[in-house]
Design a protein around this nucleic acid. Structure first.
Lengths: 190, 190
DNA sequence: AATTAAACCGAACGACCGTTCAATTCCAAG
DNA sequence: CTTGGAATTGAACGGTCGTTCGGTTTAATT
């Protein structure tokens, strides 16, 4: 029971202040135990970061595997854009950490996490390649298109707040349309 | 002469390891002086961060003021996309810090930096609004379009490396085309 | 009620933190 | 050659860091 609370506290604090700026004593205080007791739940501070990054990316990949509708490229890109926004808005802390703390990882852990990230980047690449080959999309470069798409979608996390001018569904709509336009698919005005 | 070297070393180290993870002694070692001597060039560590953020955003705003071609919305958006990529690829460290270390700023400094960032976000907003009103662009939401555009363009910094598959000019071309497509402007295939 | 293993405390370790400051070195102006 | 101010050193300050560990509490099982 304490284990998950330790991980949750670490995630919240790492996201808020950064890995290097958070002390084990702060994490322990958040959980309500002494700093020494943390070491029943993690071998060290680095493992806390490693495990939360790994499980975040594992979750991401398996969630898409389940959400992927397959089929035609345009519909699939639409689904991907909406999935990406939804998944990322649901876990802003984990997303922030996965982006910002890559540099806090030791080399071999970094390589492992990087491989998972590349695996995810392959998802829009495959969709764009399909759309290009079937002639429904016009994109100059599949790799760059994928990177641009992911950056655009992940960017939602930097400004979206619940209770703002637009709700999640509206944001999904707007972004899905821009994502399609980006690769040359024109949609009807809304 | 030492002053600029201190700022340069701090910028490089902050970008590489993060503000919190870099010690004054590391900065001093990089410059080749003792840690105490740093305090002839900055009142404290926080001022190093504040000054580099402020001057980065000042540079960004005045560089665009000079690069802005004005005139018609489509050409102006094309110019903005190319300008943004070029400016950001030229100073990857400063860009990284400006994005990642907002949370390391004290509240009043944060507010000041945030205001400069908002000023820059107003640039694509104005272009999109013009394009929308003159009927050459179709974008569902000007604010979201601006955020998506900036996120997409800034994303280049996360993967671009000199000597890679595409040079800067080619990247500019691809991204300018995607930026226009995103807001409903179709361009000829390349 | 006795046993046991896990959970936890709290003090301690050596290392490093940002910052200060008296003392020293450096170097250009007179 | 002297002088004066800027540049720099290096030790020291009080604190905090991640981690360890002997001892104590807790709670479930026999």
């Amino acid at each position: 029971m304490t284990g998950p609370r330790v991980r949750a506290a670490a995630e919240r604090l790492f996201a808020r202040h950064g890995y290097a700026a958070v002390s084990m004593r702060q994490i322990a205080a958040e959980v309500g135990i002494g700093a020494g007791a943390l070491y029943h739940y993690t071998p060290d501070k680095q493992a806390l970061l490693r495990d939360m990054m790994r499980s975040h990316l594992d979750d991401l990949l398996s969630a898409w595997a389940q959400a992927d509708p397959g089929g035609e490229a345009v519909a699939r890109l639409d689904a991907f854009a909406r999935f990406h926004i939804r998944f990322h808005l649901d876990r802003p802390d984990a997303v922030f950490i996965a982006y910002m703390e890559l540099r806090s990882l030791e080399p071999e852990t970094f390589a492992e996490i990087e491989a998972l990230r590349k695996q995810y980047e392959a998802v829009p690449e495959a969709i764009l390649l399909d759309g290009l080959q079937s002639g429904v999309m016009q994109v100059t470069d599949v790799k760059l298109g994928s990177m641009a798409l992911i950056a655009m979608l992940t960017g939602v996390n930097t400004w979206y707040r619940d209770g703002g001018r637009l709700d999640r569904a509206a944001v999904e709509d707007v972004y899905a349309r821009m994502a399609l336009g980006m690769v040359g698919v024109q949609t009807v005005a809304v």
